[in-house]
Design a protein around this nucleic acid. Structure first.
Lengths: 348, 348
DNA sequence: TTGTAAGCGTTATCAG
DNA sequence: CTGATAACGCTTACAA
C-alpha cells in the first residue's frame, strides 16, 4: 500500500488537516510546522492520491477527448494541440477513439462521467450531431467540426466553405475549366461544406460541373487513390482536381503517377488541411491551411472557460483558413519546399 | 449535483448496497428487486461516479501513456494501438506528451499517481532510461523503445538492428557501394541501433564507410531534408541513402527532387518504420516495416498482465521487422502501390 | 436476500 | 495556528 497523508501526518506529529494545508498552501500554518511537514513528505516521497482528491474536491483536473478514430496526421495534430494546452493549464487528457455510432459515443461519454471535468468531442458526422441534441450531459462539452446549426453546445469549426472556395477559385484563376472533386463522405460535415465551396466557386465562375467529375472518397490516402483513378478514367477527364483533404490529395498524387501523368503539367492537384507532410510530398502540395493543433488548443480554452464561469450563451467559433500555394497546382514562381517559404495567396 | 447511488436507492426503496450489487452483478439480489432497481436507474439515467468507484476499489481502470512528443505518424499509430487494446479490455487511456527531461517525466509520473493503474513510457532517450533506474514507482511500468539493458522494467523494443541491417544489405545486393546514412540523434536508442545495423552491414560487405556519408537528422521531415542536402553536396556522393526513419526518408526524397535528382535512378532512398503514408509518396518508399500500432497494443497487454499477476521476472520483448520493397530503392519488378501488394523481401 | 457501516485518501468546516 | 470530523460516492465485509 502506498503512503498516504496519514503517514505523513503521523510521522510529522500533526493532523492530516495540517498536512493538507501545507501541501495545498491553503490556510495558515506556522513556518516551523510547514518546514517539518515538507521535509517529512519529501523523505517519504509522498504523492497525494489524485483519485481521493478528485472525489473530495468534486473535480478531476482532467478533460476527455472523443474522436471517431486516431488515424493520420489530422487527428494526431488535434490531440497534440489539446495535450499542450491542457498541460499548460494543469489538466490531464483522456483520449478515446473509434466511436462511430451513436451508442458507442454515449457509452464513452458515460464511461467518462466522473472521470473528467469536461469533454471535447470531434463530431463531424452530421447524423451523430443531430442525435446529440438530447444528450443528458451534465458536464461541459465542446464540439469540434460539428454542424453548428444542430447543436446546443459550444462549437469550433474550420472555415471549410471559404477555404474550399478559395482554393477552387485559385485553380480557376490558373485557367482550369474542368476541375474534378474528390469529396469526403456525405455524412461528414466538413466534407459537405467543402463540396459546397467547390460547387459555388464553379457555379459563380460560370462552369458547368460534369457529374462524372465528382467522386467520393473517405479521407484516407487509399480512398483518394481509388477516387482519383476513377476520375482519370472518365472520357473528358479533368485538368485539375480538388481533394477534400490532404490525405486524399496525396493518394491522388500517387494515382496520377501510376497513370503516367505529370503533376501539375498533366493534372493539377490541391488538397485541404495542410498537414505537416504536405510540403514534403512530390510535388509539394498546394492546399488550404488550417491551424489544426490550434483547433485542439482552442477547444481546451473554450472548455476551461465554461468550467469556470457559468455559461451564458452558446459560443460558435470559426477558424479561418488560407490557401498555401506550392507546386502541385502548377502556379508559377513558387519557391522550393523545405523552409517556411510557402506563398500564401488569400485568406478566407 | 448529479444523481448518486443514494438517489437510486431511495427511489427504489432499498439500500445503496443492494443497488451496488445490481449494478455490478455482485452478490445475490431477488429478481424482483433487481428489475425495480434497474428500472429506477434507467429512469434517473444514473451513471456511477467513477472517481468514487476508483477510490473504493483501489483501481482506476485507466492506464497512462507518456510520450516525448506527439508528432508525426509514428506516435499517432502507437497511441492508436494503445487506445484500441485498452478499450477492448475496458481501460481508459491518459495521454501526456512533451516530456523530454528527466524532471518533466518524473513530474508527469507523479501527476499520474492514483489516476492510473499502470503506465506505458516511450523512452527512446538513453539518458533518460538510465536515470529511470532508480525511479520510485509503485505502479507497473512498461517501457517502449528503451535500451533494454539499462532498465529493470518490462521493455518492448523493435528489432532496430536487424531491420537496419536487412535494408542496407538489400541496397548492397542491388549493387550500391556508396551508401549514405541519415541517422537520428545519438541519444536515441532506436537511432543508435539502426546506425549499428548500417555499420555492421557495410563492414561485413567489406565496404569502407566514408565519414562524410554519415549525417545526423532528428527524425523529422525537415531534418531529413537538411541532412540529405548535406549528403548530396559531398564530393563523392552516395548512390543510395538509408534514412533512419520514414519521416527523414520523405524529407530526403524532397531534397533529391530539389537537387534535380531522380529517385531511384540517381539516388536510391530507403527508410524505416513503414508509416502508412510511405506507400503513397513518390516514388513509394522502400522501408522496414514495423507493426507500430501493435507495439502499442502489446504494451497494453503486457501492462495488464503484470497488473493481474504479481510480476516474477522482467520481460523483454522484441518486435520483428521486415523489409518492404517499393520503388524508391530501384529494385526491379516492384508492383504498383495502392494495394497490399508490396513485396516483402526478408524477415529479420 | 437485504441492510448497516466501515473503509478508500483527500479536502474543508468548525471549534478550540 | 491546529485538530477533529464530516463530507465526497462507492464497494464490501459482516449482520440480520
Amino acid at each position: 500500500m502506498a503512503i498516504t497523508i496519514r503517514d505523513v501526518a503521523r510521522k510529522a506529529g500533526v493532523s492530516v488537516a495540517t498536512v493538507s494545508r501545507v501541501l495545498n498552501n491553503s490556510g495558515p500554518v506556522a513556518e516551523e510546522t510547514r518546514l517539518r511537514i515538507a521535509e517529512v513528505a519529501r523523505e517519504l516521497s509522498y504523492t497525494p492520491n489524485s483519485t481521493a482528491r478528485s472525489l473530495s474536491m468534486q473535480r478531476t483536473s482532467a478533460i476527455g477527448v472523443l474522436l471517431p478514430e486516431i488515424y493520420g496526421e489530422f487527428f494526431s495534430e488535434v490531440i497534440r494541440g489539446v495535450d499542450q494546452a491542457a498541460r499548460r493549464k494543469g489538466y490531464h487528457v483522456l483520449v478515446s477513439s473509434s466511436h462511430s455510432s451513436q451508442e458507442e459515443i454515449e457509452a464513452a461519454l458515460r464511461a467518462m462521467r466522473g472521470r473528467v471535468d469536461g469533454l471535447i468531442l470531434l463530431a463531424a458526422d452530421v447524423e451523430i450531431t443531430r442525435l446529440l441534441v438530447n444528450l443528458p450531459s451534465d458536464i461541459p462539452l465542446v464540439l469540434l467540426n460539428a454542424d453548428p446549426h444542430d447543436s446546443p453546445y459550444d462549437t469550433l469549426i474550420i472555415d471549410n466553405y471559404g477555404g474550399a472556395r478559395a482554393v477552387v477559385e485559385h485553380l480557376l484563376g490558373l485557367g482550369h475549366r474542368r476541375i474534378g472533386l474528390i469529396r469526403g463522405a456525405e455524412r461528414n460535415h466538413d466534407a459537405r461544406e467543402r463540396t459546397r465551396g467547390y460547387v459555388d466557386a464553379m457555379r459563380e465562375a460560370g462552369m458547368v460541373i460534369d457529374p462524372s467529375h465528382i467522386v467520393t472518397g473517405d479521407f484516407t490516402e487509399s480512398g483518394g487513390h481509388r477516387a482519383a483513378r476513377e476520375l482519370l478514367a472518365v472520357s473528358e477527364r479533368p485538368t485539375a482536381v480538388f481533394a477534400s483533404n490532404d490525405s486524399m490529395a496525396i493518394g491522388a498524387l500517387s494515382a496520377a503517377e501510376d497513370a503516367g501523368l505529370e503533376v501539375p503539367e498533366d493534372l493539377a492537384v490541391v488538397g485541404f488541411d495542410d498537414v505537416p507532410i504536405a510540403q514534403y510530398v512530390s510535388p509539394p502540395l498546394t492546399t488550404v491551411r488550417v491551424a489544426i493543433a490550434e483547433l485542439g488548443s482552442r477547444a481546451v480554452s473554450r472548455l476551461l472557460t465554461s468550467l469556470q464561469v457559468e455559461q451564458t450563451a452558446v459560443v460558435r467559433e470559426v477558424l479561418r483558413t488560407e490557401v498555401v500555394v506550392r507546386r502541385s497546382c502548377g502556379a508559377s514562381n513558387v519557391p522550393q519546399h523545405g523552409g517556411r517559404t510557402d506563398e500564401v495567396v488569400e485568406g478566407s
